[in-house]
């Protein structure tokens, strides 16, 4: 169980970092998404997950599941979701305005060239 969680966090963040370093916007967006998945699993495991433990409701219970990481993960998921939506729209806007999906817009000269090409 521990090994599985550690492995999934590691693989997810490894893939996320690799993709985030790519030069076109779409892989970068996917990379950021993978990174946020990795961090969600990581946050969850930081509360030391227990199997079959109740929530903090029953004062008589001997052990209970830590509620804080769940709240953190929930917040993180919502924020990451909003951010992903935003980055996708921004990437589309950049693709539209820069004429390429390269994250650097492939340099200013090429932008003006492509505009000239369009004009002609």
């Amino acid at each position: 169980m521990e090994f599985l969680i550690a492995l999934s966090v590691g693989v997810l963040s490894g893939c996320g970092v690799y993709l985030a370093l790519r030069s076109s916007t779409f892989p970068v967006v996917v990379g950021l998404t993978l990174l946020s998945y990795a961090v969600n699993v990581f946050l969850f495991s930081m509360g030391r997950p227990k199997v079959g433990a109740p929530a903090v409701l029953d004062a008589a219970a001997e052990t209970y599941a830590d509620p804080l990481p769940q709240a953190l993960v929930l917040t993180a998921i919502v924020i990451a979701f909003a951010m992903t939506a935003f980055v996708i729209v921004l990437a589309l806007k950049a693709r539209d305005e820069l004429g390429t999906d390269h994250v650097d817009g492939a340099g200013e000269t090429q932008i003006s060239n492509s505009k000239e090409a369009k004009a002609s």
Binding site: G16, F42, M46, G47, L72, A76
Partner: peptide, 12 residues
């Protein structure tokens, strides 16, 4: 993302 990793580790 790094912020969340740091926060998670500190909480852990």
């Amino acid at each position: 993302t790094l912020f969340l990793f740091a926060v998670g580790t500190l909480y852990g």
